[in-house]
Simulated scan of single mutants.
Amino acid sequence: MELREKVVLVTGANGFVGTYVARRLREEGMRVRVLVRRPEAREELARSGVEALLGDVTDVRAREEAVRGAHCVVHCVATDAQELAEARRVNVESTAGLAEAALAAGCERFVHISTVAVYPLRERDGVVEEDSPLVTQGDTYSLTKAEAERALNEVAARGLRTVMLRPPLILGVHPSSYWGTRYPGMIAAGQFPQVDGGRATLGHVHISSLTEAVVLALRVDAAAHQAFNIVDGHEPWHRYTDYFVGTRPLPQLPAEQAPAFLSFRGRYSVDKARRVLGFVPRDTFASSMDEIIRSLARP
């Protein structure tokens, strides 16, 4: 699909991923529309040259207005709320509702930012490919993101051309970046668990690689109705935590008691993304971490 001058709705555009996605799509010459909840965020985004609508993605009328006249949607909104009902309201129901609205409006493509957390990782090693089963139980975030994918597949079966992008840990600089802003302080305070001495696998992707994958997911016709792991590389977990460990040692946690993403020792395949999308990892772990360290050092 030719992207220039196409109208794209980006949800979550004042969050970490959405901010970078909106910026990257503007560079492609797209007419970016965003849906935000706060008036001050709307004003700030409008000044950056996007069409900013005030509303909540969980609201039916706001969704319908936002997709009207849009050629495609990039859905970045998600919550990590621990209450299952709230997580389902945002991650599942609003995603399905937005997809329904996009289908009714005749949108050409719906790109959903999912996560590798949808995989159960039962074996805790091996290679995880996109046809692996999705979780049906477990932590609230993983479960509701998997449910969102299933809901999208139901809408896709009726004609919406959907693409699922599944990133692992996303590195980059933004006030709401978990791994670039929030967790470094927890690690320094000794409030982050270390599993098996940090030897488990950390899959990572820099935000610039993820936004490039979004562009490819919109542009490449063969991407429709498919899911893709989007990964720059893999490192042992201690290489991340070592950057931030302070005077307090990290609490040690046996693998059998740890969440799967902290104890997994395999890797996520990007062969399909390379083959179908033409995706090429853009950033190394070292360069991504250097960017984060520089940002944290700024007053």
Rank of each mutant, 00 (worst) to 15 (best):
V135S: 06
Q137H: 14
V155D: 13
P120C: 05
A146L: 09
A81V: 01
L160F: 11
P184G: 09
L121Q: 13
L98Q: 12
G180L: 07
D80T: 00
H112C: 05
D131G: 11
V116S: 04
L103T: 13
L103V: 07
V163F: 07
R150C: 04
S114Q: 12
L165V: 08
E147Y: 08
S94M: 09
V128M: 14
T181H: 14
I113Y: 02
G159M: 08
V128F: 03
T181C: 04
L98N: 10
S132Y: 15
L165G: 05
E147C: 06
C76P: 11
D139R: 02
P175C: 06
G126H: 11
S132A: 15
P133F: 07
C76A: 12
A96Y: 11
P184M: 06
A146G: 13
V90W: 01
P167Q: 12
T181F: 07
A148V: 10
L134F: 12
V92P: 03
A151D: 13
V90I: 14
A85G: 10
W179I: 02
L160A: 12
A102N: 10
L171S: 03
E123F: 07
Y119C: 07
R88F: 00
L143C: 08
V173T: 14
V118A: 04
S142M: 05
V155R: 04
R182F: 08
L84W: 11
Y183N: 06
E86S: 02
Y178L: 00
A96I: 15
V163G: 05
C107P: 09
L165Q: 13
G172A: 05
R122V: 09
E93D: 15
A102H: 12
L134Q: 14
E147M: 15
A99Y: 11
I170Q: 02
R89W: 08
A96F: 07
D131N: 14
E108R: 14
T144S: 05
F110K: 03
I170C: 01
G138P: 02
V118C: 01
A78C: 05
V90D: 00
V118H: 03
D139C: 00
A156I: 01
E149G: 02
L143G: 03
G138L: 00
H174D: 14
R158K: 15
A104I: 07
L121K: 15
A105F: 09
G185I: 06
